[in-house]
């Protein structure tokens, strides 16, 4: 909009120490690992070493490329301190577990062992992630749809609110996982009942926040729309719902957190697939390397889903740009 904004001057390259931070941290961490591995019982470190070689090669390539790509430079300036810290943390983890035996060993393997498990069991892990994704999405989407519909009805109509609110207040706070025993009996398939439980967990916060957003729509927006000739459908769909969207997103985020929890519990109790099941299965065999491998996959998986929801939020709420603080 503003044509005369000058771009802030950008130095042509990252400072040398920032370029070297990631490969440097990799060398330190892997060097530590080699020192520790001499004393410890022999562990297979080839895959761990390959990981660092890859990091070093990629970071050197990027360090060269950033001279020509300002966008890449900006991204690296933002991300490199975090990557460096993450790599150094791997080293700290190695020292604490394998090096100093500060944590009981079978339960807390070092990073190299976890990486080995990640690679050796990748097919089953991939399959479990896929099953978790399908279950999560089907439950989440079902819960969001039902939650939006009931939230809009409760928020808009005072008679629906009269009957709906008590129900919401009594049923809503019960953790969805408390229903597991009943859900397992009611539904013929564990997958179906788990999807239903996830939907239930999502439904409550989405309904609650949608309803409060709708009923708190500024009266003046509704007044303006009425003087412009708006009927009820316009008032609901083009005034109240857009006005409630910031609130609705808070509900969607809360629901997502609840759905992760319910997913993992439901999988480890009833469903015989997915990451939650994988964790409890690996625990049964005392394969703690696999437990950690699955937790790492979960972290990546859940944070990716969360990031996607943030992206959606930023896209839908462009009109709030500059005023959103979270």
């Amino acid at each position: 909009m503003n044509a005369n904004t000058a771009p802030t001057p950008d130095p042509p390259s990252l400072p040398w120490w920032m370029q070297l931070a990631v490969p440097g941290a990799s060398l330190i961490t892997f060097g530590t690992h080699l020192l520790i591995a001499q004393k410890a019982p022999p562990v297979e470190t080839r895959s761990y070493m390959l990981l660092f070689w890859e990091i070093i090669v990629v970071s050197i390539v990027l360090a060269i490329a950033q001279r020509f790509r300002p966008a890449l430079r900006k991204w690296m300036r933002h991300m490199w301190p975090i990557f460096t810290a993450a790599i150094l943390l791997l080293g700290v983890w190695d020292v604490i577990t394998v090096g100093l035996h500060l944590l009981p060993l079978p339960y807390f393997p070092g990073p190299a062992a976890v990486l080995r498990n990640l690679i050796s069991d990748r097919e089953l892990l991939f399959d479990s992630t896929w099953h978790s994704l399908v279950l999560l999405l089907s439950g989440y989407i079902l819960g969001v749809i039902v939650g939006l519909v009931s939230g809009v009805c409760i928020g808009w109509s005072s008679s629906v609110r009269y009957w709906g609110m008590p129900l919401l207040k009594v049923l809503g706070p019960i953790p969805a996982t408390a229903w597991i025993p009943i859900a397992m009996v009611v539904s013929p398939s564990a997958i179906m009942s788990s999807a239903g439980l996830i939907a239930l967990a999502v439904w409550f916060p989405v309904t609650m926040l949608t309803a409060s957003g709708i009923s708190n729509t500024r009266a003046s927006y509704l007044d303006v729309a009425r003087t412009l000739g708006a009927r009820r459908l316009y008032l609901i769909f083009r005034v109240a719902i857009p006005a409630a969207v910031p609130n609705i997103f808070i509900g969607l985020f809360m629901g997502l957190g609840a759905s992760f929890l319910t997913l993992v519990v439901a999988e480890s109790v009833g469903v015989k697939s997915g990451l939650g099941w994988y964790v409890s299965w690996a625990q049964g065999w005392a394969e703690y390397g696999k437990v950690f491998a699955a937790i790492i996959i979960m972290a990546a998986f859940f944070s990716t889903v969360m990031t996607l929801l943030f992206k959606l939020r930023d896209r839908v709420l462009v009109w709030q740009k500059g005023t959103i603080k979270w």
Partner: peptide
């Protein structure tokens, strides 16, 4: 009614609509 237009003391623009969207609102309604 749309036959009696009111411009409020505060602009009360719909923040989720662009300038064009706000001006169109009456036609859409």
């Amino acid at each position: 009614s749309a036959e009696r237009g009111l411009v409020f003391q505060d602009p009360n623009l719909f923040p989720w609509l662009t300038v064009r969207g706000n001006i169109e609102a009456g036609l859409v309604a």
